[in-house]
Simulated scan of single mutants.
Amino acid sequence: MINKYRRTVNKEFEKSSFWPTFTDMISTVLMVVMLMLFSSESITGSVEKDLAKNIDVSVNQTLKESGLPFIIDQNTGQVTFGEKTMFDVDSSILKPEAKEMLKILIPKYVESIYKDYGDNISKIVIKGHTDDVGSYLYNLDLSQRRAFSVAEFIVGNEIGDYKYKDKVLKNIEAIGRSEAELIKSSEGSINRDSSRRVEMKYEINVNK
Rank of each mutant, 00 (worst) to 15 (best):
R197A: 01
V155Q: 03
Q78T: 14
K201N: 10
E48H: 08
G118S: 08
I175C: 02
I126R: 01
I43Q: 11
E41K: 06
K64A: 11
N120P: 07
I126S: 01
N75M: 12
V206D: 05
K15N: 02
G45W: 00
F22M: 05
K99L: 11
V33Y: 14
L142D: 02
K4M: 09
S16R: 05
D166M: 09
K184D: 02
S149W: 01
L35G: 15
F38Y: 13
K108L: 13
Y202E: 14
S66D: 12
D50M: 13
G67R: 05
G128H: 03
D56K: 01
I204F: 07
M1T: 11
M86W: 04
E83M: 11
E203G: 03
I190D: 06
L35A: 15
F81C: 03
S39L: 12
K201C: 06
F38W: 09
P96R: 05
N120L: 05
Q74I: 00
R197L: 04
A151C: 02
S92N: 13
N75I: 08
F81I: 10
G82R: 15
K123I: 06
L51K: 03
K4H: 07
N139Y: 04
F148H: 06
N3I: 13
K170L: 11
E199M: 05
E152F: 02
Y5L: 08
D161W: 07
S16T: 07
F22S: 01
Y202A: 14
A151R: 01
N3C: 03
K11T: 13
A147M: 06
V29M: 11
